[in-house]
């Protein structure tokens, strides 16, 4: 399985993702420069965290028009696996590949901390190694993670089980106090209706080795590899 990690000017988690996929999971992985226009030959694309184009105007707004994005959008629309982490999630929202938008954290602070997440749906290429309802621990680091969707969109996300992760207390209870940014419904990650595009604010690449204090993030990347190696394909 071949991964591509897209590097925008201002990406800063690209090397962490590359390390996890290549050194920790032993998968072939390449960097793809934002100025490239071709993503042929890749099985999964990762849009990493960072501050693409300085987050000017709105986080992800300018990256969404990078030369590589038409190819990423084509890849995603034709069912290719796409994972957007933090700034990558913001870019996917701006590109319209996922519904909703990000607002500034309600606390106005940049939040860099461990969070507990409840896995709301494990029947996806990205979460199949978790149990449904499992509480996992993955860190966040963002100032604009306050996810917003209008009531109709939110109802649709709920009905189609597209909410994948919610911020929760260590015991799994979804409470306002466990929400670090004010996101609607404590949402930390969502998937598109077809199930091939996941966006999440927490950083799984930062907790994929015990040396870094946790390995729950590794299971997310390993889920993708397992899913692919079992020969599962969406819509098949």
């Amino acid at each position: 399985m071949k991964f591509g990690v897209i590097v925008f000017p201002g990406s800063n988690c690209d090397q962490d993702v590359y390390h996890v996929l290549g050194a920790v999971l032993g998968q072939p992985v390449d960097y793809l420069w934002h100025g490239d226009t071709d993503v042929a030959g890749y099985d999964c694309l990762v849009l990493p965290g960072g501050f693409s184009y300085g987050d000017y105007l709105r986080a992800g707004a300018i990256a969404r028009f990078a030369p590589i994005m038409p190819a990423v959008i084509d890849f995603a629309r034709s069912g290719g696996l796409v994972l957007g982490i933090c700034n990558g999630f913001q870019i996917l929202l701006e590109a319209g590949l996922l519904p909703g938008a990000m607002r500034r954290n309600d606390c106005l602070q940049f939040r860099c901390q461990w969070t507990y997440l409840r896995v709301e749906n494990n029947a996806t290429p990205f979460t199949n190694r978790f149990r449904e309802g499992q509480v996992i621990r993955i860190p966040i680091a963002h100032g604009e993670g306050n996810y917003y969707a209008d009531a109709a969109t939110l109802a649709e996300l709920e009905a189609n089980r597209q909410i994948i992760f919610r911020y929760c207390a260590p015991d799994g209870e979804v409470t306002p106090a466990a929400n670090p940014n004010g996101s609607v419904g404590n949402i930390a990650g969502i998937i598109n209706r077809e199930g091939n595009i996941l966006g999440m604010m927490p950083h799984p690449e930062r907790c994929a080795e015990s040396l870094l204090g946790g390995t729950d993030g590794r299971e997310l990347f390993a889920s993708i590899v397992d899913w692919w190696q079992r020969g599962e394909r969406l819509g098949a």
Binding site: L57, R58, A101, R103, Y148, A149
Partner: peptide
């Protein structure tokens, strides 16, 4: 297309 995000 760019300057405003019509969602919010």
């Amino acid at each position: 297309r760019l300057l405003a995000n019509p969602v919010i």
